[in-house]
């Protein structure tokens, strides 16, 4: 008899648990994992445990990314300085599209393959993850100049956002953390892996002989820092742009590069190696956009390097290329432009 009761009890208990789980499933967001091309040469899709990619989170994040109402004057969105049609950069050396109209002190970087930027984001790697980074551009007076409490108030009173937040994160009040998490999720879906180079590596197309020649010039001269796959070593190097680094206290070490984060003298004037993917559509170049063309970049590596105490050892003697080799290298760099990525993320409407 007592056994029967226990059995009955556990059956009832079981069915309760099951229905609870079903309920949870139906209301919880759908986890997704993007498809990753082997040509990126990565083994997994890194993301913080607290903010895994979900369908609902990405939808919300995309809406936030393109919403100028997040800014103090209602006119500046993330996409103002990260335009999809030029691989999410803005084409300016130091953009002045922010709320204050003042030019920025850093060049707006293109956005793609961010999930693998696990060594720190921003040119100096100061942001540990996208979730922490987003508060920078959202609140900086020369960017979106937002008050986070104002954003929360706007989103909470909007007709669409509360539902989208609930779908992505459950029934909780909208808070700054979740705004940033959604934007981070969308940003991690920006994956550039369909260039001609990728198709070639997958043996779907051939490279021309000049492109192939450029590929070997790349391997011999550029690949140690711009490592094949992501086309960056995700590390920080001083590439001989400057001899000294002014340090006005109010800029908190801005001109010192990675040193302002690590306080390691070897990092003085060092910045993160940018990816060469989409390089031909993301001019100007360097952390401050000082070089307008790829020719200027190659000139710098050939004869413009300022030898200084923290210079990357591999750049001591510069990189000298014949005119012909330069042309070949540029032909190869053109194969890294990812039209599919551009059209996939172009603003539809």
């Amino acid at each position: 008899m007592s056994r029967f009761l226990i059995l009955l009890g556990s059956v009832i208990l079981f069915s309760c648990v099951e229905s609870l789980e079903q309920e949870r499933e139906s209301s919880s967001p759908t986890l997704i994992l993007p498809e990753i091309s082997r040509t990126l040469r990565v083994t997994d899709f890194p993301q913080p445990e607290r903010n895994p990619l979900t369908e609902e989170g990405v939808i919300l994040g995309k809406k936030l990314f393109f919403d100028p109402k997040l800014s103090a004057n209602g006119k500046v969105s993330c996409a103002t300085c990260h335009q999809p049609e030029i691989a999410f950069t803005d084409g300016e050396a130091l953009g002045d599209f922010g709320v204050s109209g003042n030019p920025l002190k850093r060049h707006s970087p293109p956005l793609f393959n961010l999930a693998w930027n696990t060594t720190g984001l921003f040119w100096d790697g100061g942001a540990n993850d996208l979730e922490s980074l987003n508060f920078g551009p959202l609140t900086h007076k020369d960017e979106m100049a937002a008050d986070l409490d104002d954003i929360v108030a706007y989103l909470s009173q909007d007709k669409d956002y509360p539902q989208l937040f609930e779908a992505a994160f459950g029934k909780i009040p909208i808070q700054s953390a979740y705004i940033s998490r959604a934007i981070s999720q969308y940003s991690r879906t920006l994956i550039s892996q369909d260039s001609k180079y990728d198709q070639w590596k997958k043996e779907e197309v051939d490279l021309t002989s000049i492109e192939l020649q450029g590929y070997s010039i790349y391997l011999n001269n550029c690949a140690s820092c711009h490592q094949e796959g992501l086309f960056t070593d995700l590390s920080f190097h001083n590439n001989g742009l400057d001899l000294d680094y002014p340090n006005p206290p109010e800029l908190e070490g801005l001109y010192q590069g990675r040193y302002r984060i690590s306080y390691n003298p070897k990092d003085m004037g060092a910045y993160k190696t940018p990816s060469l993917r989409n390089i031909m559509i993301t001019a100007p170049y360097m952390h401050d956009g000082r070089f307008q063309t790829i020719e200027e970049v190659l000139n710098h590596y050939e004869s413009g390097i300022q030898v200084n105490a923290s210079l990357a050892p591999s750049l001591q003697n510069g990189i000298k290329l014949s005119t012909e080799d330069r042309q070949a290298l540029i032909s190869f760099l053109n194969t890294l432009t990812d039209e599919k990525f551009i059209s996939k993320h172009a603003i539809q409407n």
Binding site: P48, R50, N51, F122, D124, G126, A127, N128, D129, E131, S132, L133, N134, F135, G136, T139, H140, D147, L148, D149, V152, Q175, S176, A177, Y178, S180, R181, S184, E252, R260, I261
Partner: peptide
């Protein structure tokens, strides 16, 4: 201290979070 997407007293709305150096 390694991240700033947090709530309560750690919400970055309080002017106490660094955005350029998490």
């Amino acid at each position: 201290n390694a991240k700033t997407d947090q709530t309560g007293d750690l919400d970055p709305n309080s002017d106490m979070a660094w955005s350029w150096n998490s």
